[in-house]
């Protein structure tokens, strides 16, 4: 009996000072949560930064990762529709249910672009709520940091001072960076670009770039030769600067187009870990704002 009491005495402080265990869907959310939560939170990131965010594999091992989470933060905007619902279903964890106050859908807190007036699958795999890649506008990162701060305070008010302080620190740093990136991108205003999939919509919106076409004929549908030929003609006429390409699709078609038209293929990482050198949010936007020469 004594043994058990001793064990309990040792374990008790651990539970008292235990960190919030927060599961997040994508690496950028993990970085934001860590920036605001600091030492008070532990994060578990479910998706890999160098794979397609639409096609995360719902491995059973991910169920074990969300099983004991105290909270879940997701991107939303239907980006996780193909893989997160079965994980939530099977994890049997009421704290990550969509109606729980420990569940946060970031897409509810930013304005989504390109919300389609009507949706029909003949238009490809469209997102009815709008383009969900909103974190690639660095101005939105600040809004999301504020959202995460409010969320952490709402579920752990004891540490609200810590979260406020971390947020203030983060937003100071980020505002300085925003100025720097803005001046770096100033000469790119009104530049025309082509993309594989419209991943960079918010980045383009932030810096005045115009995306004239995508290599995919329709969202989520792989390239076809007919569409590629039409695209080559369009590029010759419109003269965009370059093809912005994600890291997870094959660049074969983009390179073919590049060969035929002479425009460059520029790799644009979409998240932390997309390339080995992208280790945090700052290096992500440092890279993106330097990528287009």
């Amino acid at each position: 009996m004594k043994k058990y009491i001793f064990a309990l005495l040792f374990l008790l402080p651990l539970t008292l000072f235990a960190n919030l265990n927060i599961a997040v869907t994508y690496p950028y959310i993990g970085a934001l949560t860590k920036a605001i939560g600091g030492e008070k939170v532990d994060t578990v990131v479910l998706a890999k930064g160098n794979w397609d965010p639409h096609f995360v594999v719902p491995r059973p091992s991910l169920i074990a990762k969300v099983r004991d989470a105290d909270a879940l933060i997701m991107n939303g905007g239907q980006l996780e529709i193909g893989w997160l619902p079965p994980l939530i279903d099977r994890a049997s964890n009421p704290k990550i249910a969509t109606n729980a106050k420990t569940f946060l859908d970031l897409s509810q807190h930013v304005e989504l672009l390109q919300k389609p007036a009507s949706v029909d699958r003949s238009g490809g795999d469209v997102h009815p709520d709008g383009n969900p890649h909103f974190h690639l506008d660095p101005n939105n990162i600040l809004i999301l940091a504020g959202t995460v701060k409010e969320f952490l305070i709402s579920i752990d008010s004891q540490n609200s001072a810590v979260y406020e302080k971390n947020y203030a620190h983060f937003s100071d740093m980020w505002n300085k960076k925003l100025e720097m990136w803005k001046s770096k991108m100033a000469d790119k205003n009104a530049l025309k670009v082509v993309q594989y999939h419209n991943v960079m919509a918010y980045f383009n919106h932030a810096y005045g770039l115009t995306s004239i076409a995508t290599i995919e004929p329709l969202p989520g549908i792989p390239p076809s030769s007919k569409h590629t030929m039409e695209l080559i003609e369009l590029i010759k006429k419109e003269k965009p600067c370059c093809i912005l390409h994600d890291v997870y699709h094959d660049t074969k078609t983009a390179e073919f187009i590049s060969e035929k038209t002479g425009i460059k293929v520029v790799i644009m990482p979409h998240d932390i870990g997309a390339l080995d050198t992208i280790e945090d949010l700052v290096s992500l936007f440092d890279y993106l704002t330097s990528a287009i020469k």
């Binding site: 059973p60 091992s61 169920i63 074990a64 099983r67 004991d68 099977r90 994890a91 049997s92």
Partner: peptide, 12 residues
């Protein structure tokens, strides 16, 4: 009835 065991791997 299903139970997820609190193991580091997935066990149901």
């Amino acid at each position: 009835f299903q139970w997820l065991a609190p193991t580091p791997w997935y066990m149901k």
